[in-house]
């Protein structure tokens, strides 16, 4: 099962969990699988128009996913990492 790596800023809905293994064949399916058990998680990643928020970056096995990120296929042993831009200023 793919593993979703949740960055600290987005661990409110996951109750502090940083890694969650899920059933899913695409990026979106995996994110929706996290949402199923952790309501509020998906809205942090995906905007209401169905696109990835511009301040979120997604990585598959360390490589950034660009373009139509949500439709990307994931293999069972893939890691999907979510990164969020955070800075004080």
């Amino acid at each position: 099962m793919p593993k979703v790596i949740v960055p600290p800023p987005y661990r409110g809905p996951t109750g502090g969990r940083g890694e969650i293994q899920v059933e899913g064949h695409t990026v979106l399916e995996c994110l929706e699988a996290v949402e199923k058990d952790h309501a509020g998680f998906l809205a942090q990643i995906v905007a209401t128009d169905g696109t990835v928020h511009r301040f979120v970056k997604l990585f598959r096995n360390g490589d950034q996913i660009t373009g139509d990120a949500l439709g990307e296929k994931l293999a069972p042993d893939d890691e999907l990492e979510v990164l969020a831009a955070i800075a004080g200023g």
Partner: peptide, 19 residues
């Protein structure tokens, strides 16, 4: 790497608002 600050700290506004 992802260079998360390349558009400046001001781009954090929507994340902070969400949180």
């Amino acid at each position: 790497g992802p260079q998360m600050f390349k558009t400046g700290t001001s781009s954090v506004v929507p994340v902070a608002n969400m949180l």
